[in-house]
Design a protein around this nucleic acid. Structure first.
Length: 201
DNA sequence: CTAACGATTCGCT
DNA sequence: GCGAATCGTTAGT
């Protein structure tokens, strides 16, 4: 049986390393008694203290970002453009506000349900590729803000799929040009050649 | 209380 | 490939 990632995985102090490690892991949800899961194929790291692109840095500690300042292993779901639910994993210790954004997943279990949620009929990139898309595919919404990833609603499993380091592509993050130099940091990771990740640059 | 903006997506040319 | 849609949160009056 696959093992659920322990709190110690999220509690480490290197958010970039955690973002790398999350690639190939399996994100599972049990929403309304419907089980779906997907392999994490693209992530993005946000460092609350040094990264100007991070919400916790832009806005400081607010009602919305507060969960990032709390304990690790929680879900931070942010509503973007009024429509898109972006799913993040809170990492590191209390008060540090680090987080990893899950940008894309490859549908694994409950595919029919995922296709239905996305109003698609075939497994194509538009099913799991993209931050808001991946969340929707697994049924994650702002209602899951602050969900404990060690519980039985949303969690991440380790399927022991060891990735070769050369199959991990690091690149600058997109949509964060306002962050100046920090927008150039190669903190976006994806699995090489996976059809559900964003097109290669 | 009111105004401005965004870690994006979808549809049309 | 490019431009508009859309609404909760944030910050300012």
């Amino acid at each position: 049986m696959p093992e659920k990632l322990p709190l110690s995985f999220y509690g480490r102090d290197d958010v970039v390393q955690i973002a790398r490690d999350l690639l190939g892991k399996v994100l599972c949800t049990n929403i309304n008694d419907v089980f779906t899961s997907g392999i994490i194929v693209e992530t993005e790291a946000y460092n609350g203290r040094t990264d100007k692109a991070c919400h916790s840095h832009i806005h400081g500690r607010t009602k919305r970002t507060e969960i990032m300042f709390g304990k690790p292993g929680k879900a931070y779901v942010y509503l973007c453009y009024g429509i898109h639910h972006l799913f993040n994993v809170v990492t590191n210790g209390e008060g540090l506000a680090d987080a990893v954004l899950v940008r894309a997943i490859e549908p694994l279990s409950g595919v029919p349900t995922i296709l239905k949620r996305r109003s698609r009929t075939k497994l194509e990139r538009s099913v799991g590729g993209g931050p808001g898309i991946a969340s929707q595919a697994l049924g994650i919404s702002t209602a899951h803000y602050g969900t404990d990833l060690l519980g039985n609603l949303i969690w991440i499993e380790d399927h022991n799929s060891l990735l070769n380091q050369k199959d991990i592509i690091a690149s600058p993050r997109v949509g964060v040009d306002y962050a100046g130099e920090d927008a150039l940091l190669p903190w976006r990771f994806r699995i090489k050649g996976n059809k559900f990740t964003s097109p290669a640059k």
